[in-house]
Design a protein around this nucleic acid. Structure first.
Lengths: 211, 211
DNA sequence: GTCTATATTAAGATAGAC
DNA sequence: GTCTATCTTAATATAGAC
């Protein structure tokens, strides 16, 4: 049975694809409607403005991230599970990568995104804190307070900007945009803080993510 | 004696200031000329296009970075000198921060910047490699090949995006945009790879950069 | 819900006088 | 070298018919 996808939803998925591919500022409402073979007027029937489309996509991004980052403070994660979590995280960030590609521009044109961006940033930091706490409880990791703060900061920065950095470095390469490369990088960020046996285990695991 | 600064140079410094403050896409040629109290026509007498202004500013950025990153492969740096170098590096990156704030947008509209961006990126990586090699020769640091690669990658990513990340986190805070914060962060990236005594020394040094 | 046609605005850039 | 006036282009958004 063929299900007709609602035009409103098609606008969102088409916009997201174009934003990621060409950069949000380079995507006009006309281009979106052209790509979908609908009229520009029709697009404006479903969304009052381009910023409404962006706001809704940002809402989707936030919802998915909140879901991922809802880490119970008392959970114990294995290194395997950590890798899986990171993979999902990078995969989600890649699907909404346009947001971080022109951050200042987007925030200045849609000012209410500023606070929403900061909120999700602090949530990432707290998520990493929970994970590090778990590793510490399991005696896989041992860190003083300052180092732990700096590490969580570093982890947050890295997940936010890894995709931008990697795609700049690999401009046009086929192995670009593989979430595994991000996971590998984060593993090496954690490695030096782990106990010897945990570090050994993580080194082996890292090979699976190497590309 | 009052020296009249050439209009052409004033255009560059005014543009740079406005780009950094408001984001390049939000700065029109009219705004630049307004700010300088010259006519838009005059601006176009000195520069054929807005992209020429950006190209020239990028040239300045590249020249300054090349200067900084010209690290002789056999030099031995102390941890003090390393801190000084990092401070200069972050200071320069902050003066041209607009470039990284809307990277994809800027690269798509001025396509010849793409390769110039990649070149400067690889030069940063090589600079960090030289510094790590020096620390290794002095037996302050010891790392296997994979870890060294990942560390240099991480250092490069961090210097490129630290300012963006920090200003997003500190939106509107007064302690935002202090190069010292970046130095502190990079110190903590190196710390776990140093020998015990070097790590101790760096911890002390880091306090001077803490804000 | 969807279309075509058009209004509005603003940016980058040029022409020609002084 | 600098000005004023204007051209050109293109993007967001609306009006009104179907």
């Amino acid at each position: 049975m063929v299900v007709k996808v609602k035009t409103r939803d098609r606008i969102l998925t088409t916009s997201l694809a174009l934003f990621n591919e060409l950069g949000e500022p380079n995507v006009t409402t006309l281009l979106i409607s052209d790509e979908m073979d609908i009229s520009p007027g029709n697009l404006y029937y479903h969304f009052r403005s381009k910023s409404d489309i962006i706001g809704e996509l940002f809402g989707q991004y936030t919802a998915e991230m909140d879901d991922l980052l809802a880490i119970p403070p008392d959970v114990e994660v294995s290194l395997d599970q950590l890798g899986f979590f990171l993979h999902l995280l990078f995969e989600t960030l890649e699907r909404y990568r346009f947001l971080y590609h022109d951050l200042v521009n987007i925030m200045s044109r849609y000012p209410d995104l500023k606070n929403r961006f900061r909120k999700i940033l602090s949530r990432k930091g707290k998520g990493f804190r929970s994970l590090c706490d778990s590793l510490t409880r399991q005696r896989l990791m041992s860190l003083d307070q300052s180092s732990l703060d700096a590490l969580c900061e570093q982890l947050t920065l890295t997940v936010c900007y890894w995709e931008s950095f990697d795609s700049l470095k690999e401009l046009g390469n086929r192995n670009a945009m593989d979430p595994a490369r991000g996971v590998y990088q984060v593993f090496y960020l954690l490695m030096p803080h782990l106990t010897e046996s945990a570090a050994g285990e993580l080194t082996v695991l890292a090979q699976e993510y190497r590309r």
